[in-house]
Design a protein around this nucleic acid. Structure first.
Length: 848
DNA sequence: AGCACGCCGACT
DNA sequence: GTCGGCGTGCTC
C-alpha cells in the first residue's frame, strides 16, 4: 500500500452499491433467425425497460430495426460485446406476457422461429421500419462543392432545397428522377460530400383525425350569442350556419357542450349551408377549428345493446349443457346441424363470460366473417366488440390491437390471425366452423392452425374453449368421443325448417340417355326453372373457378401449360386469357395452337365462369351472379354480391367454396352440386372428410325459415359410400366409417403428421436433397414413420420442383418434442450440405 | 431476411 | 484493366 496522501483515504470498503446495474435485454427480431439477440441498455435508461415493449437497435452494419424485448437480465454476453439499444419506443408492453408465452409455444410446436411468429402477429404498422433518407450535407450548404454536378445530381440538390434541411426518402428520389438506377446518383453525391444519408424510424400508425369546429370561447354565453346574431344580421348565410351549430350543440343549455364542438363536415357538407360561410366564421374568429383524434371504430352506444332475445327450447338446453360441461371440462364441442342457431348460443355464452369480467375471442373462417354477423354482434355488444378481419387496413388492425390492450374491446370477433391479439384475461374462446381448413396457415411460417392455437390459449389463460361445427373435424369428434372434450349436440334446425331433401343425379347414365345439356342434367335444369318461376332462389356449387381448367388443341392434342408450374393453364373467358392458379401467371388466349397452328382450340372441363355463361343461355329468364375469388377480389365486391342475392335481385348464385359458408338466405330452396366427383377424388387421406363437409355445408344453404329445401348432387357414380352418409344426414355414421379408415391407415387422430417439403429449382437436386433428408430422418426416427420422398401431384410451383416427406408420429408429447428436434437436426444436415445450398426446406406440422 | 465481402465475365 | 454478377456467411 503506497499512499502519497498524508491521510489515508478511507479503506476501500465495498462501496454501498452505487446502484449502477448494467442491464441487458434479449430481443426478438422480426427475422427468421433461430436465436434471440442481446443488447445493452444505456444506464440512464434502465427504468425504461419494458418486457414486451419495442426498442430500436442497430442490427448488422447498416440496418436499424425495431424489435420486441423478450427478457431482461444482468448477464453480459461472454463471446461478444453487446451493442447498445438505440431507443425505447413504448413505456408499456405492446406484447403481453401471456402472448410471449404463447408465441414461444407456437415457434416450438410449429417448428419456426420466434421472429417469424412475431412477424405474423404484429400488424405491420407496429413494426417500425427504417427508411433511408438523404439530406444536404451542411458543408455543401455552406461552401458548395468543388466538384461539378450533372443534371440528375443537380435536380436532387434542388429538390433537397437550401438551409431548411428537407429530407427525401429513396423512393421519393426515385420518383423524382423517373429512373430506377438512382442509387448511382446518390452514391456519387455522397462521394462528393453533397449529401449524407441517415436512417429514420417511421411510426407507420397514423391516428385518424377529424376537423371539428366549435364556438370561440368568448361567445359561449347567452348574451354573447345574442349579440352575435345582431352583428351578423346582414349575413344570412352565416346566421344559418350558427343556427345549425346551436341546434346540434345547445350551448345555451350547457356551456360545456361547446368543448366537443361538432365535425366541420357536418356544417360544410350540409346542402342548406354554405361552406364558405363556415370558413368566414372561422376566419373571423367566431368559430374555431380544431383537430380531434378519433377512433376508426365509432363508439356508438347501442340502446338495443342489452336487448335480450329468446333462445328456442333446444338452444336453451344446448346452452345449459355447454355451461354444465364447462364445469368439468375446458373444451366443449358444440355439434349442431346447419341452421340450428349456434350463433345465438354463442352470443348468450359471450354475454355470460363478459358479465364474469373476462375477455372473449370469437373466431370465424374468413369467408364466414360477414357484415351480417358483425352487425348482429354489434347490436348486442356495441362498442365492446372489436372486429379483426384480413380486409382491414393496417391502421384499423392497430386500433383493435390497442383496443384489446387498453381494455376497450372485451370481445373480438376475428379471423385466424386474431389469435395473436394481446389478450391477457380471456375466459372464453369460440372457434366456429372449427373443421375449416382456412384456420390453417399454409405459407409462410408460422404454419399454425388457429383452432389449435385457440385451444392452447385457453389452456394458458385458464379459459374455456367452445368448438362449433355442423361437420366436426374427425380429430375433434374423436377427442369428444374419448371424453377429452365435452360434447353437446343440436340436431334440430331452428324454427320449423326441416333438413333438406337430398337427391343424387347419375350423370353418366343421363349422358348415355342424352339427357345432359352441357354440365346440367335435365333434372337440375327443370328444378331450377320451377324454383325461379316460384320466385325462389338457387345456389349452384362448383369447386373450380375460371371458365375451363384446360384447353386443348383438337388437332394435335397440345395443352398450354404454365412455364413455372406443373399445371395446365385455366381459361378465363371474361379476361380472355389463360391463367395459372398456382403462381398467377397469365397470358392472352392464343387464337391458334402454338404447336401446330390449328384454330381448333377447345375448352375441357368447366369452372364457375362457364356455368354462369351456360346458364345465361339456358335460363335466359334467370338473373345469374357468380361468386368466386375472381369476382370478389375488389374490396366491397363480396358484400355487393351477397347484398344483391339477399334482396333477391339475383335468382341464381354460382360459386365456389365461398357460397358454402355461414350465409343465411331465407329464400334459397334449391342447391345444386354440379360436379361432386371433382370434390371426392382428391389424392389425400382427408378427401372424404372434406367432401362430406362440403356437401353437408352446401346442402345447409337450402331451405330455411319453414321451407324445406332440396339438394341435387350430380355425380358419375352415385354408389360411392360417402353419398349414403350425406343423404342420410348422419354425421355419426360418417364418423364411424371414417375413424376406422384413419385407425387402419394410422392417420390422425391416431398419429400426428409433419410434412416436410424440399424445394429446388433443379429437379434432380430436389430429389437428391429429399433422399438425403429421408435417410437422415430414418436414421433418427426409424423407417416405419417416414414416408416418401415423393413428388406431390403438382410437382412444380413457381419454378421450384417439390418433393414431400411425411412423418407420422405418436401423439405423445415427449415423443413429439424429441421427434421435432430430430427433424430439425436432419434438416440442418441437408442445409449444411454445399450441394444443397439452394434447396429450401419447409416443415409443416399438422398439415391440412 | 438483408447486407457485406469475395471471386469470375463483358464493358469503359 | 474495372464494374458488377450473385455465392456464402454473419448479424448481439
Amino acid at each position: 500500500m503506497s499512499l502519497t496522501f498524508e491521510f489515508a483515504s478511507p479503506a476501500p470498503v465495498p462501496t454501498p452499491a452505487p446502484d449502477r446495474v448494467t442491464l441487458f435485454v434479449d430481443v426478438i427480431l422480426p427475422l427468421p433467425l433461430p436465436k434471440l439477440y442481446t443488447y445493452r441498455v444505456p444506464y440512464e435508461l434502465n427504468d425504461n425497460v419494458v418486457i414486451g415493449g419495442r426498442v430500436i437497435v442497430q442490427f448488422g452494419a447498416k440496418r436499424t430495426l425495431s424489435c420486441i424485448v423478450a427478457a431482461v437480465h444482468e448477464t453480459p454476453p461472454k463471446e461478444y460485446q453487446a451493442k447498445y439499444i438505440l431507443e425505447f419506443i413504448d413505456d408499456a408492453p405492446v406484447v403481453t406476457q401471456p402472448q410471449l408465452k404463447l408465441f414461444r409455444w407456437m415457434a416450438e410446436y410449429y417448428m419456426c422461429t420466434l421472429g417469424e411468429v412475431i412477424n405474423a402477429a404484429l400488424p405491420s404498422a407496429l413494426k417500425l421500419s427504417s427508411e433511408s433518407r438523404i439530406q444536404l450535407h451542411p458543408v455543401f450548404v455552406a461552401e458548395g462543392s468543388p466538384y461539378p454536378l450533372d443534371d440528375k445530381e443537380q435536380r436532387i440538390v434542388d429538390a433537397l432545397g437550401g438551409e431548411d434541411g428537407k429530407a427525401l426518402t429513396f423512393t421519393e428520389v426515385g420518383d423524382l428522377l423517373e429512373v430506377a438506377s438512382f442509387h448511382k446518383v446518390i452514391k456519387s453525391l455522397m462521394q462528393k460530400d453533397v449529401i449524407f444519408l441517415f436512417e429514420q424510424m417511421a411510426d407507420k400508425y397514423t391516428p385518424k383525425v377529424v376537423k371539428k369546429v366549435r364556438l370561440a370561447e368568448h361567445f359561449v354565453t347567452m348574451a354573447a350569442v345574442e349579440q352575435l346574431f345582431d352583428t351578423l344580421a346582414s349575413k344570412p348565410k352565416q346566421v344559418d350556419v350558427l343556427l345549425k351549430y346551436l341546434q346540434r350543440v345547445p350551448v345555451h343549455h350547457n356551456e360545456h357542450l361547446n368543448q366537443q364542438g361538432i365535425e366541420k363536415a357536418a356544417l360544410t357538407s350540409s346542402p342548406h349551408l354554405s361552406p364558405s360561410a363556415v370558413n368566414t366564421l372561422i376566419k373571423n374568429g367566431i368559430l374555431e377549428q380544431f383537430d380531434q383524434i378519433v377512433s376508426r371504430f365509432p363508439l356508438e352506444e347501442n340502446p338495443l345493446a342489452q336487448m335480450p332475445f329468446q333462445l328456442s327450447e333446444a338452444q336453451t338446453t344446448a346452452r345449459d349443457e355447454v355451461m354444465t360441461l364447462f364445469g368439468q371440462k375446458n373444451i366443449v364441442l358444440l355439434h349442431g346441424v346447419t341452421g340450428s342457431g349456434k350463433t345465438e348460443i354463442y352470443i348468450d355464452l359471450i354475454r355470460n363470460a363478459l358479465d364474469g369480467g373476462g375477455q372473449v375471442l370469437y373466431l370465424l373462417p374468413e369467408i364466414a366473417l360477414t357484415a351480417q354477423i358483425v352487425t348482429r354482434l354489434m347490436r348486442v355488444f356495441g362498442s365492446r366488440l372489436g372486429v379483426y378481419h384480413s380486409k382491414f387496413s393496417d391502421n384499423e388492425r392497430v386500433e383493435v390491437w390497442n383496443g384489446v390492450l387498453s381494455g376497450r374491446f372485451q370481445v373480438v370477433v376475428g379471423v385466424r390471425s386474431a389469435v395473436f391479439l394481446p389478450f391477457d384475461s380471456l375466459s372464453l374462446l369460440i372457434v366456429d366452423e372449427e373443421h375449416e381448413s382456412s384456420y390453417k396457415q399454409y405459407d409462410p411460417a408460422p404454419r399454425y392452425n388457429a383452432r389449435e392455437v385457440a385451444l392452447m390459449i385457453g389452456n394458458f389463460q385458464g379459459a374455456k374453449v367452445l368448438l362449433g361445427s355442423a361437420t366436426p373435424a374427425v380429430e375433434t369428434f374423436y377427442m369428444a368421443r374419448q371424453g377429452r372434450y365435452g360434447l353437446v349436440s343440436l340436431s334440430k334446425r331452428f324454427g320449423e325448417a326441416g333438413m333438406p331433401e337430398i337427391e343424387l343425379i347419375d350423370t353418366r347414365k343421363l349422358r348415355a340417355d342424352k339427357k345432359m345439356h352441357n354440365h346440367f342434367s335435365s333434372d337440375l335444369l327443370s328444378a331450377m326453372e320451377s324454383k325461379i318461376a316460384q320466385q325462389e332462389q338457387v345456389i349452384l356449387f362448383q369447386n373450380r373457378r375460371g371458365y375451363a381448367p384446360v384447353i386443348a388443341c383438337q388437332d394435335c392434342g397440345y395443352i398450354p401449360k404454365c412455364q413455372s408450374c406443373a399445371v395446365s393453364l385455366s381459361y378465363h373467358k371474361h379476361a380472355h386469357e389463360l391463367r395459372c392458379h398456382y403462381c398467377g401467371y397469365h397470358e392472352g388466349m392464343p387464337t391458334q395452337c402454338p404447336a401446330c397452328g390449328s384454330r381448333a382450340l377447345r375448352t375441357q372441363g368447366f369452372g364457375t365462369e362457364k356455368l354462369e355463361d351456360d346458364l345465361k343461355i339456358m335460363l335466359p329468364q334467370a338473373n345469374v351472379q357468380r361468386m368466386d375469388l375472381d369476382t370478389t377480389r375488389a374490396k366491397n365486391a363480396y358484400q355487393q354480391i351477397i347484398g344483391d342475392f339477399e334482396q333477391q335481385k339475383t335468382n341464381v348464385l354460382v360459386g365456389t367454396q365461398m357460397v358454402t359458408k355461414g350465409l343465411d338466405f331465407e329464400n334459397v330452396s334449391l342447391v345444386g352440386i354440379v360436379n361432386a366427383d371433382a370434390i371426392i377424388h382428391y389424392p389425400d387421406y382427408r378427401a372424404h372428410e372434406r367432401a362430406y363437409q362440403m356437401f353437408v355445408q352446401v346442402s345447409g344453404r337450402a331451405g330455411r325459415k319453414g321451407k324445406k329445401g332440396k339438394v341435387l348432387i350430380q355425380t358419375g357414380d352415385p354408389t360411392q359410400v360417402i353419398f349414403d352418409k350425406v343423404i342420410r344426414n348422419d354425421y355419426l355414421e360418417f364418423y364411424a366409417y371414417e375413424i376406422e379408415q384413419r385407425r387402419e391407415h394410422e392417420y390422425p387422430p391416431f398419429t400426428r403428421m409433419i410434412k416436410l417439403t424440399v424445394k429446388h429449382m433443379d429437379q434432380e437436386l430436389a430429389q437428391k436433397a429429399a433422399i438425403l433428408l429421408t435417410q437422415e430422418l430414418v436414421d433418427r426416427l426409424g423407417r416405419s414413420v417416414v414416408l416418401g420422398p415423393e413428388p406431390p401431384y403438382i410437382f412444380r410451383i413457381r419454378n421450384f420442383f417439390l418433393q414431400e416427406i411425411v412423418i407420422k408420429l405418436s401423439r405423445e408429447h415427449t415423443v413429439l418434442k424429441q421427434a421435432k428436434l430430430d427433424i430439425c437436426a436432419a434438416m440442418d444436415i441437408v442445409r449444411d450440405q454445399k450441394e444443397f445450398r439452394q434447396a429450401r426446406l419447409v416443415a409443416d406440422v399438422d398439415p391440412m
